[in-house]
Amino acid sequence: MIVFLQSVLSGVLIGGVYALVGIGLTIIFGVMRVINFAHGELVMIGMYLTWIIFTGLAIDPFVSILISIPAMFAVGALIQKTLINRVLGALPENQILLTVGLGLVLSNLVMLFFTSDYRILTTSYSSSTLRLAGLSVSTPLAISFAITSAITALLYWFLLKTDTGQGIRATAQDRDAAQLMGINVKRMSLLAFGIGAALAGTAGALISPTYYIFPQVGGVFTLKAFVIVVLGGMGSVLGATLGGVIIGVTESLAAVYISAGMKELFVYVLFLIVLLFRPAGLLGRSRV
């Protein structure tokens, strides 16, 4: 029983970080209908940013998100303005390939300047734990889960209660209608990509004290983010939150009860099952 509870707990905690990556991807998709294959690379850039701030300025990774959130927002907005915006009306396939190419460029640029060495952040609390009713909880993971929850709550408030947030949601629902209603659709796209990138970067920052950093790390997150987003329903923020936690727990349980090498297999099988039987995802509106 303790093994089961421990693995569910680990799954939920890591799932929170996955959710953050997924939410970013789902917002971008919702507003622009572009699947961002370079999303994991944005997570990677967030990680390197955290690493630079930590080693260069000695700022704690959890504090550094105050710097990396605006920085990543700017990176996202720049990518949207210079690249994505030009293919918004093009074939969806070309959009996919553009982001694939962008991903290659980002990861290899980073490799050129930082080499492919593994970087590992060692903070005073990197391997410390909290004890909770016989279960052990990694301190940095618990902190990052708390921050993730706070950011997600903030994001909900922003999307539901503010005018800009409602504008983004309206654009996601129907781009043309939103434009007719006088919403600046271009600005919303810029905002959406910026927010998506900022969330990916934050996830990178939050996971870096318990993980390691190398230029190709993005691929892991890109694939996971797809699964999460499809699972929750493309464009659904609540769905992505739920999807992240489901994937975290599935991986964790599969690793304990079947085999660690097979855990991804279960994630992809789950992904296919959802795609086939509920293509709109668990919480998505049917649009396929």
Binding site: R86, L97, L98, G101, N108, L109, L112
Partner: peptide, 16 residues
């Protein structure tokens, strides 16, 4: 060491 980088740049340029 940068050939994948150049692949990536090529793809982006070609698509745009």
């Amino acid at each position: 060491h940068a050939h994948v980088l150049i692949y990536g740049i090529l793809v982006v340029l070609v698509i745009l």
